[in-house]
């Protein structure tokens, strides 16, 4: 990016920044004096945590798709649905919209997240096609969207509590709901462990000159 040359990082200045409250401290400080957050210029163990949570999340995602998510009992029949099976059935009944919502929330987003986190982590070693700004955006999207995968677990919770009509129909949760929730939680932890400052380190090859530190540009806030 064109303004990148003007940017001085805390590390260049021999400082360490608090990622929680944005205060800076001399390098070597271990704990933020303002908010008490632990300080790392670049956490050496961050990538291990990212990969560990990533792997556990992926392991939970497999049974989440193979085991039944919902058990439905009606007067005449009883059936068990996996995530994809349930969506396929909705599509057969003509509910294309909802089938798409479920497929996007429970298949596309989780799988996309696994790929995106792995891509971001691997991209730290050898810069790929995407520039830092794009990767930062990708990271923010992954971080933001992660929680939304929980929607499927909530749908199961709502259906199981609502559809309790004695002999007529009843719905109960299957074991996949637990695995799915765990998978979402672990991928969220994985994304949170990722230190996005590392994305920008690739750019910082210029010698740390000491330009005057600029004030951040000020814009009108969008009417929220």
């Amino acid at each position: 990016m064109e303004i990148a040359g003007d940017v001085t990082t805390a590390r260049d200045m021999g400082l360490v920044a608090c990622t929680r409250c944005t205060r800076v401290w001399p390098l070597g400080t271990h704990k933020c004096g303002r908010c008490g957050h632990r300080l790392h210029s670049r956490d050496p163990h961050a990538m291990q945590r990212v990969w560990a949570f990533w792997a556990v999340g992926l392991m939970c995602y497999v049974p989440a798709n193979l085991a039944p998510m919902l058990r439905t009992r009606t007067l005449v029949s009883s059936q068990e649905n996996t995530i994809v099976g349930g969506a396929a059935e909705l599509a057969q009944h003509g509910n294309w919209g909802i089938a798409m919502v479920i497929l996007v929330a429970s298949v596309l987003i989780p799988v996309g997240k696994f790929i995106a986190i792995a891509g971001l982590a691997l991209g730290l070693r050898r810069p790929g096609a995407l520039g830092p700004a794009r990767r930062q955006q990708l990271y923010e999207v992954v971080d933001y969207i992660g929680r939304w995968s929980m929607i499927d677990v909530f749908v199961v919770a709502i259906l199981s509590s609502l559809v309790q009509l004695g002999a007529v129909a009843s719905v109960s949760p299957g074991p996949a709901s637990l695995f799915f929730a765990l998978s979402v939680i672990f991928t969220m932890l994985s994304a949170q462990s990722f230190d996005s400052r590392r994305i920008w380190d690739i750019e910082a090859v210029a010698p740390p000159a000491a330009p005057p530190i600029p004030a951040p540009p000020v814009t009108k806030a969008h009417p929220a």
Partner: peptide, 19 residues
């Protein structure tokens, strides 16, 4: 140092100018 602010996402440091 209390006059400085670091971007939590990319580590860029700025001098605080209160908007």
């Amino acid at each position: 140092l209390s006059d400085l602010i670091a971007c939590p996402h990319c580590d860029a440091v700025y001098r605080v100018a209160q908007p």
